[in-house]
Design a protein around this nucleic acid. Structure first.
Lengths: 110, 110
DNA sequence: AATACATATGAACACATAAACATATGAAGA
DNA sequence: TCTTCATATGTTTATGTGTTCATATGTATT
């Protein structure tokens, strides 16, 4: 069984490689998913829109920690919010999160 | 528009929340995807099985850096390898990576 | 206007992590 | 066995990250 790849083939692989910027953005988005606090926030938001206080309560953490993480999720355009009096109600920005999570869970279950 | 969630509803959300361990594993897997070097390695492996030397060459990095990252990818069961003489030929462990990546790219493109 | 409540922000600290360097392992050929 | 080539591993260092604490912003109520 001989494995052989010449430079032409390597060149071809490099041509088909996505742009550096795209790869960077991909990694950046995964970085957002790479913290269990943020994953938990996304998981509760999958079930219902919630205020910051409710998220804080449900995850038993400080309000500050939650707020910092919501900031990252906002920047990644994964969540959005609307105001309701003194409260800010957060919700998922789209359904991509669910799709990505379920695909990834499939890999874990084996 | 009144937003109101009582404690019963919060309890229900907590019940439906995945196990702490599952969430942790999910975040851990995403952490593997959260570095652009590892994403690039996975991208070249999507195109062809490659030796460590070829990966090193194609990404213009030190062999040590590549080897360290391959170790993480191995631990996450994202890649596997077979021996061919002095070479180790790495390949993707399954097709989940492609699926996850394309879903995530969809979110980025908007 | 003063107060209370909900949320955001800034700084600091403890901890994690990627890359580089040096070195070790392990296979093949002389 | 000695050497060479391919890859892995241990250590160090510089940089990044999550949480906490203290404080600021902003909205509603009186």
């Amino acid at each position: 069984m001989e494995h052989e790849i010449n430079d032409d083939k390597l060149d071809k692989i490099l041509e088909n490689l996505p742009d550096e910027e795209l790869i960077y953005n991909l990694a950046e988005l995964f970085k957002v998913f790479s913290d269990s606090t943020r994953v938990r926030i996304l998981c509760v938001l999958m079930q219902s829109d919630l205020t910051v206080g409710e998220i804080t309560k449900s995850l038993s953490m400080t309000q500050s920690a939650i707020s910092h993480q919501l900031r990252m999720l906002k920047q990644a355009r994964l969540v959005k919010f609307r105001r309701d009096g003194k409260n800010l109600i957060y919700s998922l920005a789209d359904e991509h999160v669910s799709t990505i999570f379920s695909q990834t869970l499939e890999h874990i279950m084996e």
